[in-house]
Amino acid sequence: MIHLKKSWRSPSRSPAELFSHLVVWLCASISVVTTIGIIAVLCKEVFAFFSHVSLWEFFTGTEWTPLIEPRKFGIWPLISGTLLIGLGASIFAVPIGAITALFLSEYVKGTPRIILKSVLEVLAGIPTVVYGFFAVFFITPQLQKFIPDLDTFNALSAAIVVAMMIIPTISSISQDAFEAVPKYLREAAYGLGARKYQVATTVVFPAALSGFVASVILGFSRAIGETMAVTLAAGATPRLTLNPLQSIQTMTAFIVQVSLGDTPAGTIEYQSIFAVGLVLFLMTLGANLVAQWIVKRFQEKYR
């Protein structure tokens, strides 16, 4: 009789197989456990925070003064500051990133492409604190020549510098998506007598839309999560405004401010950074969900 039964010597029950199964499982669960852990810690402190501050005040208040009396805990100034940086940076970075990616995938070949790609990667590798003082000591003074009312610390410089940081993210992920568009679609287009920009904009871009949207969301998430550069460049003035010429404060910058000070654990200031962190987390989560919806709705499926 041929031996077909499962046993510890059979291939799918052998110790090596079981061991590798276990290792794969453990590694995969680390990120899940971490996520759950972070949410749990956030929620615990947030729960304590909301026993002192009402949800109503937190989500409708327009003043954020947790460190000075009278203390006010309205989150909106921080949200507006964060969005100002995130959306402002996206306005600069999305078109530039998309065009860069199309240029890299459709227009240049060989050595120039490799050189350009490595320059972009260098841009991605610069420490964020360097971007921060680049904004304070270079961009802001330059801008002040044209815009005399510009504050020393302002959202505009911060948004520009954050845009520079996320351009590599957007362009490199988009480029991968553009390059993954099958060659036969390009051939079909060129065979019909299309020009390069027509192929890039009406065949390659729509076919790679999902990858492009993913890159934008990733860039946006990075922009609103960006800490060091905006803490340096945008200042620490929580203010409900959409005026990019003034100093503002983002959620991340506030968290830095509190964490750097000697705020004892258990105080309301201390708990407030967890509440702010949770809101930031929900915002990035929301951005990702929106992105997934957009991708599902508008993607051209070529497979």
Binding site: L185, E187, E300, Y302
Partner: peptide, 10 residues
């Protein structure tokens, strides 16, 4: 030109 594999646009 018509190609080996049908390649309509999506």
């Amino acid at each position: 030109m018509v190609f080996q594999k049908p390649n309509p646009f999506p």
